[in-house]
Design a protein around this nucleic acid. Structure first.
Lengths: 363, 363
DNA sequence: TCAATTTCTGAAATCGATTTCAGAGTTAGG
DNA sequence: CCTAACTCTGAAATCGATTTCAGAAATTGA
């Protein structure tokens, strides 16, 4: 009376081919079949071939659960990105997956939506899945997360940053230094009235925060510290780039250079500048960060910082593969970024300190 | 002498907490601990709480390999996309992952780079991993792939298309119908000299092929069949969009409407048009496909077809969750696309059939 | 030709959690 | 007060592949 409902008999409908079935067909023991698959070289060639034929005939594939159970290795790595919507992360994940796949690993993917609590949950779930390694993004992770990882004894690496706290190794670029250089470049061009658009609303976005700090540091060093209203906070959408620029120019109409912490924001800002009738770069220089595909195709092409996302992904994969194998691994890897000067940036109108003439106390 | 090298002792360094350890601490049998975790309601409350405390104290997490082995369920789904570089796929994967995560599933991700052989390899690897369900993209898949899936007895669904061969259920939009409508719209505006830019170089890109067919069908029906030189094949990069437009206008300078099978191509085409000094939409209408974020922010905003990527991802997740549970599932789901008319398209210059005047036999 | 190696194969233990089966303990009914 | 009917817990089998250990077969050398 209390029978189980008649849904999906149990596991698979066709009772999966087991190693024993192959063994019986081939008139050998399961041990031999296993050896043919795992250490082909120690099996007599003719026997090996015979077994192989039967393996193919029966289309046998080993049960990875049983395999993982016995060997303690899942051959699986997990990655948690803030979002896949950003091309830069998608590119990194793709490179990561490709490299892992070459080495027989499979990639679990999860996304945190820039939410540390969600990141923790997803990590929990991945660890329960028995992953052999984990890739994170960014430097700021809760203590809880770090202890979870430590307890699980799983190799980790965090990406897109040059260093991270809590003894977690990192592979990526020095974000702060990149925007510092970019800012210094704009200073050299003669700009003095800056604005910054930064996607720092997500609490956990330490990359953009570092980038913002780079800007601030460079400007402070030049005695041009940004007022709070010269920094507009945004998320990572084009639309916010637009509105951020509008707000910035409302508060500071004499701005001549706008540094964005993301290409997306910069592209939004450029769109808005065009709409407002501002010539880029003649009256306004705009710079981005990431060097997405579109950056080079803009009109004018966008000055930005190129981030080696694919290299980061590959590097993270290599790191974990080595760490899992017990091979020595570097503490952290700092990859070079590249400032890409294109025509969205130029000296301010008519040489040095031009805007002075127009608006402010005219001296 | 022939000892194994001293690397990573074996599995984990800290000898993982087992269910038996918890059982011993709590003075119960492993069976009880298992019950506490899997069927809490059949264990006496006080005992349950006691066991729970020890589970937490020891930070015990069950070994998913052993669990999967016994239960035959991995609670894992795989997805193979052509590439993550396309925002449309990234968005779908993200939605897929989010929905699966809610139901306790974890997502394996792989990418095929539009290569059917690679797709097959990745699928092979996923099936060996014991996934419970698989998500594919597109309608065209080799027979080998289908038989592999069938043999494994794993539920599948393919995405971004309205239907697929080989009895594989699908969730997505009717690509051909979408471009047909788009073309008809341009015809109604009065265009007669069309060009098409299609990313059909990847052999397996059936979506774009269907889109191209939609264009051709609509034009044939209107007695305006495209000549081969009016169709430029490209991959999926902005740069190719640019060069495609240039080539198209070299061969057919009197073209008034260009239909692209991808927003990326359309955006590239618009960039090139601007560079060539062609006013959009005054002298040239351009349309895209996908409705990426940037499309609405272009100048002029791009007319395109909106694809419900997130809905596709969610739908695929729901489908598989049900199919795995043995619940009834729909054969296929056709989702509505949406034509988004923006200002990159308009009637050709000076009313109906304007270009006639300029170039051709002037009647 | 026989013994000593060497090479190869099979039987059986093992990985860790789940679940059936049966028995111990408890409560209710007579 | 004793048996009947439950409720709850534990012992042991099981999932499928891997691997150790030992023995059988083949090879080499004397």
């Amino acid at each position: 009376m209390d029978k189980k409902p008649v849904i999906a008999p149990k596991g698979r409908q066709q009772p999966r081919v087991k190693i024993e079935d192959v063994a019986r067909k081939a008139n050998v023991s399961p041990a031999t079949v296993s050896r043919v698959l795992n250490h082909p070289d120690i099996v007599r060639p003719e026997l090996r071939d015979r077994v192989m034929r039967h393996i193919n005939d029966l289309a046998y594939t080993r049960d990875s659960a049983a395999r993982a159970l016995k060997s303690g290795r899942m051959r699986t790595v997990g990655v948690i990105v803030p979002t896949l919507a950003l091309g830069i992360f998608a590119e990194g994940v793709e490179a990561l997956q490709n490299r892992l796949s070459e080495s027989g690993y499979t990639l679990f993917i999860a996304n945190s939506q820039y939410d540390q609590r969600r990141e923790l949950q997803e990590l929990q779930s991945l660890i329960e899945r028995g992953i052999d390694g984990i890739v994170l993004v960014g430097a700021s992770h809760g203590r809880e997360l770090r202890s979870l990882i430590e307890q699980a004894g799983v190799p980790v690496i965090t990406t897109y940053v040059a260093k991270a706290g809590g003894g977690i190794p990192a592979i990526g670029i020095d974000n702060e230094s990149a925007t510092r250089e970019m800012t210094e470049y704009l200073l050299r061009l003669g700009h003095v009235r800056f604005g910054a658009i930064a996607n720092v609303v997500a609490a956990s976005n330490d990359r953009s925060r570092a980038r913002l700090e780079g800007i601030q540091r460079a400007l402070s060093d030049a005695g041009l510290a940004l007022k709070p209203t010269q920094i507009v906070k945004a998320d990572y959408s084009l639309a916010q780039g637009r509105s951020a620029l509008r707000q910035l120019l409302t508060d500071h109409p004499d701005t001549t250079a706008v540094i964005c912490t993301t290409d997306t924001l910069a592209i939004g800002a450029m769109a808005e500048a065009r709409k407002m009738g501002l010539a880029v770069p003649a009256t306004l220089s705009i710079t981005g960060f990431d060097d997405v595909e579109l950056a080079a195709q803009m009109d004018p092409p966008l000055t930005t910082v190129s981030v080696p996302a694919a290299e980061i992904g590959r590097g993270a994969a290599d790191y974990l593969i080595n760490a899992i194998a017990g091979s020595p691994v570097p503490r952290s890897v700092v990859l070079p970024y590249r400032l890409v000067m294109r025509s969205s940036s130029a000296p301010p109108r008519s040489g040095v300190r031009p805007a002075r003439r127009g608006r402010r106390r005219d001296h």
